[in-house]
């Protein structure tokens, strides 16, 4: 190996451009059943041919409106849902081809945090038991060891040791989210999918949780996929951001680039609709999108955004735009990117 190549490789490693997880052409269709024999009548194309990479140590934000498939991609990625087609490689292994047993082992490395941890915590188990169970299932057999670890985890997320014996209903929303985070951290994961982790929380509590997530990321070199409809939060926490619309990834770029120079008309509309906490900016002309998101059962031909896009032409109805590179680290699926 030549020295130059070696140097280049070394630089790559320190830049943490290493791909931790890569999603390729993933589709997730949900059958719509009905009729006399419960036939499959149609499919909801929740995620339709989506590809992207997540780099080790980064936070990739995923934004979009309800029904755009952002949560589905998160769940499919961790095989909580089975994909209809496509591949997901985690550290080079295609996780869709793993056996159930191998997958269980791999799940230690990949965790999922839900919007409302209350519905994902067993109400009959104390917080300590909930977390200890995860440890036991994954092979920590000594009880004293488990107890020690649970205490350590609770401290990590800013809860007191006396919370161990309490039950989920005794906690506030912010505290429950901390418990959810503690449980996700229990097995030292590498990747955590955060699905609207702060959307249900009050503003002052939101910032506590966001700071906690950032601290933990630094401490344990975690990689996050941060799924949210809250643009301000995503902008704050993410290094790169992907925008989804109706099952498709329409734009992916570094956070500052995406917010400063969006190239997809939908991204622009989304950013423009985002209320800005400055009353002096209220009269700035906004791009108000007409109409609603079309049905994912029968999405529009060509570009899916064309029915609401102010720049749509005949071509947009006929040819589906490719998800193409327009600049370094900037991908857009549009025939007529802005700028």
């Amino acid at each position: 190996m030549s020295i130059a190549l070696f140097e280049a490789q070394k630089e790559q490693e320190t830049k943490t451009d290493e791909v931790l997880l890569s999603v390729r052409n993933v589709k997730k269709y949900f059958p719509v059943k009905g009729g006399l024999f419960d036939r499959v009548l149609a499919h909801v194309k929740a995620v339709d041919d989506v590809s992207f990479d997540i780099h080790r140590g980064e936070t990739l934000g995923l934004v979009g409106e309800s029904g755009c498939g952002k949560s589905t991609i998160g769940k499919t990625m961790l095989r909580i849902l089975n994909a209809s087609s496509g591949t997901v490689e985690f550290e080079g292994r295609n996780i869709f081809s793993l056996s159930e047993k191998d997958m269980r082992g791999l799940r230690r490395d990949m965790q999922y945090i839900f919007q409302d941890p209350f519905s994902s915590l067993n109400p009959r188990l104390s917080v300590g038991e909930s977390i200890a169970r995860v440890l036991r299932i994954h092979g920590m057999s000594r009880k004293s060891e488990r107890e020690h670890r649970v205490q350590e985890l609770l401290e990590m997320v800013g809860l007191s040791p006396y919370h161990i014996r309490r039950y989920p209903h005794e906690f506030s929303g912010g505290q429950r989210q901390r418990i959810g985070i503690a449980r996700a951290l229990a097995l030292n994961p590498k990747l955590i999918v955060l699905d609207e982790p702060v959307s249900a929380l009050d503003v002052s509590i939101q910032s506590q949780i966001i700071n906690l997530l950032e601290d933990l990321q630094k401490q344990f070199n975690l990689t996050y996929l941060f799924v949210s409809h809250g643009l301000n939060v995503v902008r704050h926490i993410s290094s790169r951001v992907g925008v989804m619309y109706l099952g498709k990834l329409v734009e992916l770029a570094e956070t500052d680039t995406l917010f400063a120079k969006p190239q997809h008309p939908y991204t622009q509309a989304l950013l423009s609709a985002n209320p800005v906490a400055d009353p002096r900016q209220r009269d700035e002309k906004k791009m108000v999108l007409e109409g609603d998101v079309p049905s994912p059962i029968n999405p529009p031909s060509g570009c899916r955004f064309r029915t609401r896009c102010p720049f749509a032409t005949q071509k947009c109805a006929e040819v589906e735009p490719a998800f193409a590179k327009v600049a370094d680290n900037h991908f857009v699926a549009c025939h007529y990117p802005l700028n």
Binding site: H229, A269, L270, A273, N274, V288, D292
Partner: peptide
């Protein structure tokens, strides 16, 4: 959603 919220506020 934020684009719908924008419509309603408008």
């Amino acid at each position: 959603d934020v684009t719908i919220q924008n419509q309603i506020l408008h």
